[in-house]
Design a protein around this nucleic acid. Structure first.
Lengths: 212, 212
DNA sequence: ACCTGAACACCGTTCAAGT
DNA sequence: ACCTGAACACCGTTCAAGT
């Protein structure tokens, strides 16, 4: 989680220890770190291959040794995002009593992650990576996150906390609601309406649970 | 609704009647038509100012007389989209019995519009226009569409078709669900799950109504 | 008032060449 | 095996100049 300025300062500083050789060693990892820093600090649209190369201190064509094209780098950033989001939701679910309260905490954690990592979330669900046919790892990460939601619903049904019904259709609808609410919040569409994000998260969560 | 090829052929054809003068006359309208055709036929990412100028047969800087920058052109395309979507939903609501069935038809119409005008929908809700602070007309169009939804919910409450509660919070949640489901469908995220879009639309609609 | 042409600072990507 | 440099085909945008 180094700041972008750290990389840039390192490159500008003549006392920066020279690389062991002409070869970088772990350029792939450096590129990913730099990419994440750019997204975090300058937003999704600032994530260009050339900017990443510049901040990493390599030529603009060096990244092509490690990523097929720009989209592959973006996909790697998104994949990290899915894994971090899954972990954040998992922590929220574990942190307290189970059952319906745990489910509520999970739903809230989803939207809070989107708000706290707005640019990353946009990349995860942006049009560029919408088609995941050629990105099987990314598709698996996303599907894994969906599975957590569906399994949570199944357990709630088994315990009788929510009514019966097609758990998968419920999960897709819940996901759609979370994603939609996250986007509305990120885009500031809810400012005009004058409600706090906590109110909106609570409303969406309760409507979903009541509907189930 | 002319195809892009029509504009391009017109430019390539030496028999195309020359413009009345050095001035185009209604370049703004032509640019908007061409932009809509490009979005429809080549997708949202193909909508560049230079491509629009080329297809319209003017220099690449001519559009700047009519649009402050690229974003202003994109916003104009989005605005047309909001108006057409509002009209499509209105037609669906009117076409049949009122009350809850009309509300269901409206919700379905929203998602069907998104599916049938996928690229346009992406532009309407894309990150580029997310911040509408400097686009008051666009903000008004979007808020108008939201108002239709909220008023529909209020009427359903008055008739007792759905339970009481904060209509605005219900409307935002419903909008989030529609938008989220539309995006999941457009992005093909639902393919992996193997349900038809009709099933998904029905599930989302029923869960929302039950929750209300 | 409206449009053009040249220019600038960016992109992604390819390909031959360097170490 | 990994990285560089030059090149190509794109962008958005500005500014002086043409009609």
């Amino acid at each position: 989680m180094l700041a972008l300025s750290t990389y840039l300062a390192r490159m500008a500083n003549p006392r920066t220890p020279r690389r062991r050789s002409y070869h970088h060693g772990d350029l792939r990892l450096t590129l990913l770190d730099v990419a994440a820093a750019i997204v975090r600090e300058q937003g999704a649209e600032a994530l260009t291959l050339r900017a990443v190369a510049r901040a990493a201190g390599v030529s603009q064509t060096a990244p092509y040794r490690h990523f097929k094209d720009r989209r592959a780098l973006v996909a790697a950033v998104a994949q990290e995002g899915f894994e971090r989001m899954g972990a954040a939701i998992g922590r929220a679910v574990e942190r307290g009593p189970g059952g319906l309260p745990a489910f509520r905490r999970g739903l809230s954690a989803y939207i809070r992650f989107a708000q706290q990592h707005a640019a990353e979330y946009r990349i995860m669900f942006g049009p560029e990576l919408a088609n995941r046919e050629d990105l099987p790892e990314l598709a698996a990460s996303a599907l894994g996150a969906f599975g957590i939601l569906r399994d949570g619903i199944v357990r709630l049904q088994q315990s009788g906390a929510i009514g019966p019904g097609d758990a998968e259709l419920m999960a897709i609808t819940a996901w759609a609601t979370l994603h939609g609410m996250a986007m509305l919040l990120l885009d500031g569409q809810t400012h005009a309406i004058g409600r706090t994000s906590d109110e909106l998260i609570a409303a969406a969560t309760e409507l979903l649970i009541t509907g189930m």
